[in-house]
Design a protein around this nucleic acid. Sequence first.
DNA 1: GTATATTAAATTGTTGACAATTTTTTCGCC
DNA 2: GGCGAAAAAATTGTCAACAATTTAATATAC
Lengths: 233, 233
Amino acid sequence: MTRPAPPPGSPPSSPPTQRDPDVGRRALRELRHRITTGVLAPGAQLHEQSLADELAISRSRLREAFARLEATGLIDRTPNRGAFVHRLTIAEARDVFQAREALESMCAGLAARNAPPESWQDLVDLFAAPTQALVEAGDFEGYLANVALFRRRMIQAAGNQTIAELLGPLLDRSAVAMRRVILATNRASDGLVQYRAVIAALRAGDAEAAEQRKRAQLHEAWAALERYHRLVL
Amino acid sequence: MTRPAPPPGSPPSSPPTQRDPDVGRRALRELRHRITTGVLAPGAQLHEQSLADELAISRSRLREAFARLEATGLIDRTPNRGAFVHRLTIAEARDVFQAREALESMCAGLAARNAPPESWQDLVDLFAAPTQALVEAGDFEGYLANVALFRRRMIQAAGNQTIAELLGPLLDRSAVAMRRVILATNRASDGLVQYRAVIAALRAGDAEAAEQRKRAQLHEAWAALERYHRLVL
DNA sequence: GTATATTAAATTGTTGACAATTTTTTCGCC
DNA sequence: GGCGAAAAAATTGTCAACAATTTAATATAC
């Protein structure tokens, strides 16, 4: 049977909006974005009705999104009390950085083994003068964007979907704290040096070095976070 | 305010059953158990109404459990089609074992550093004669139980909640395949040797060796799975 | 008899209403 | 005015009915 014709005037090929899974995904992305950028601060409460109204979705669909955010550790829900943006403790931050060290160092090694050395040249160039200029100009958002780009490239080159899916939530969870450290402590120039070292190892096709230097980079990042944890957590 | 007295005859201290979060958790555990043990085979479809009836919960609550199972990768849901027990592909299995290698080797190192060497003595003993006897008697369930015990101890000693929560789903996902390899190929005696080596390193307080040997153990396990993947996937 | 279209049944997704719980406000009392 | 109990409001969790979609069954043409 052909589907009953949509009322004249409604856009022809738009999914029936009633069951479009995309509308839920959009809301989920929006919430994740607000949390990882700090628009929704750690500890903030998320009220169902008002949020649902604002995002123009029903409460049930918002709750579906909540379930996913909870599963990835971005929010905490306590029965009958509500949902709150997850607040990183110092102990949990340490755990997260240890997990990232294990997974990202493996990624670095895999990336070095999988991708041809020449394929990293553009990142060598990007992290030389251009990113240096960004840091010196105090454009930390630009710096962070380049770092994110490198990370995506590394993870993609590693070719491990499972690790990629584990790292996503871990990066989201540490995003706010990382950003605060960068903004508050001028650590970007230190970080830049570390990233250059990792990229150089990839460019040289040296998997061992790439792995080792990614480990070192995360150790440094953790040390900085620990030093300023009263400020950023 | 004191809660209004329950109708006479109803068990006094039972939570109002209407909103008890435990009932949902029980159903979730039951489903996870059925999947990881293979009672619900990879690819099997999970129908909402019949399952809800069987578990004596409402459909909405079952769907909540489905959301969690999907988030941990134990089931796949396709819109309007239903939920199916996740089926591991060979490529994904490789990814999972790489991720486990990264995380479990880190755990082994942390465990060696955190826990006093003497604390591993009971596992040294357990994996000597007693487990050897189990393997020789063909009691693979007993063998797997001991392996699970060791893993719990190692993860607990590592003291990293985040890694523990990442490993849980990974272990669940590979559980069925692992079990099939053991049962079908007599690989238990090989595995036993590897586990003994890891435990010996922990007993000696040698973090480097523990890490390295855990890596080796997982490499071996992966090699076995790859060899027999047509049989077990 | 096989293939294709049509109808019916079964299944999933979403909504709105209701119940249980928490939080806020109001009221009485000292 | 401050403290505590009671009532009211707001908020979350659950359910049952309904809508949308897929799957199975039936009929029809060739």
